[in-house]
């Protein structure tokens, strides 16, 4: 029993870090800009393929790919912001949602064309290895992915709290008009923020690709996890996203270990429903929270 509890706690924490990594980009974009980026999981999928291609073609380790994904996906996000988001940013929420949904379908279908529908698995020298902590067995790949997720979350927090650009972005999140009046270049900073959100999605994709097999069609499953973390943690808050990810991870592993497995997702989605009911707010009220 003790061994099982220890295993569940360790696995829950590592899983939670990864979930927080998945939710981070979505939380930032939704919290500051109010854009419901349902294409978030499509960028996660691209991140997995980014790592896959670098590993397959050049033998680059996914840990390196995670670092390389940051600038590449930041650039990609900035381009998407300039070409698509600026056109739907001030339209009704439905139009923006449809545009992002269209982008998700487009990316998934491009993924099918380029990589086919076949599932891929990234197998490095450490993928199938593990180590023991007392009686618990821990997979190396989850420790590495969890550590990278924590580093990503930490970097995002430092950026938003200790840099001028980050503080300005937080100011936009609190009151966009007031920030503009104070001379903040909102358009430029939102480009940076969206790029940052997509960069987080890209890195999360690399981390997921390290652990789980992936295919273009499987990306939507991760969108549900990202929303679960974001709704639980509060939109736009880096620290809360981390806590929410850990809570979701721990609940999932404890439920998986001690109740019939088929009820695990029921428990998690009941939790989501309860949070939405208790807080009495939907995704549209995100801007009310500060980052």
């Amino acid at each position: 029993m003790g061994a099982q509890v220890l295993t569940v706690i360790i696995d829950g924490l590592l899983l939670g870090l990864i979930y927080a990594g998945i939710g981070l980009g979505l939380s930032l974009i939704l919290g500051v800009m109010g854009v419901v980026n349902v294409a978030h999981s499509a960028f996660i999928m691209l991140g997995s393929y980014f790592a896959y291609e670098l590993f397959r073609r050049a033998g680059i380790d996914p840990i390196i790919s995670a670092a390389l994904a940051l600038p590449v996906f930041f650039l990609l996000g900035s381009v998407v912001y300039r070409t698509l988001i600026t056109r739907v940013e001030f339209t009704g929420p439905t139009q923006g949602l449809i545009a992002m949904f269209g982008l998700m379908v487009l990316i998934e279908n491009l993924g099918v064309i380029v990589w086919t529908t076949d599932a891929r698995a990234l197998t490095t020298h450490y993928t199938n290895t593990s180590f023991a902590i007392g009686p618990a067995v821990v997979a190396w790949v989850k420790v590495l992915a969890g550590g990278l997720a924590l580093a990503l979350i930490g970097a995002a927090w430092v950026f938003l709290h200790y840099t001028l650009t980050g503080r300005a972005i937080r100011a936009i999140g609190q009151d966009r008009d007031a920030a503009a009046v104070l001379g903040i270049n909102v358009h430029q900073l939102l480009t940076i923020l969206f790029g940052l959100g997509i960069a987080c999605a890209g890195v999360a994709g690399v981390l997921l690709g390290m652990i789980y097999p992936f295919s273009p069609g499987g990306q939507v499953f991760w969108l549900a996890w990202a929303f679960l973390v974001v709704v639980l943690g509060g939109l736009g808050s880096v620290a809360n996203t981390l806590v929410a990810g850990l809570v979701v991870g721990i609940i999932q592993t404890f439920a998986g270990a001690f109740v019939p497995f088929e009820f695990v997702y029921l428990i998690l989605y009941t939790l989501l429903a309860v949070i939405l009911i208790v807080r009495r707010e939907g995704l549209t009220s995100v801007a009310r929270r500060s980052i």
């Binding site: 569940v8 696995d11 549900a224 088929e262």
Partner: peptide, 20 residues
């Protein structure tokens, strides 16, 4: 004897049960 839903993304808990 466990069953899992279609959207299951992590199977560690399930495997732990069999191992345990």
């Amino acid at each position: 004897n466990e069953q899992f839903p279609a959207n299951t993304t992590d199977f560690n808990a399930l495997v732990q049960k069999a191992k345990g």
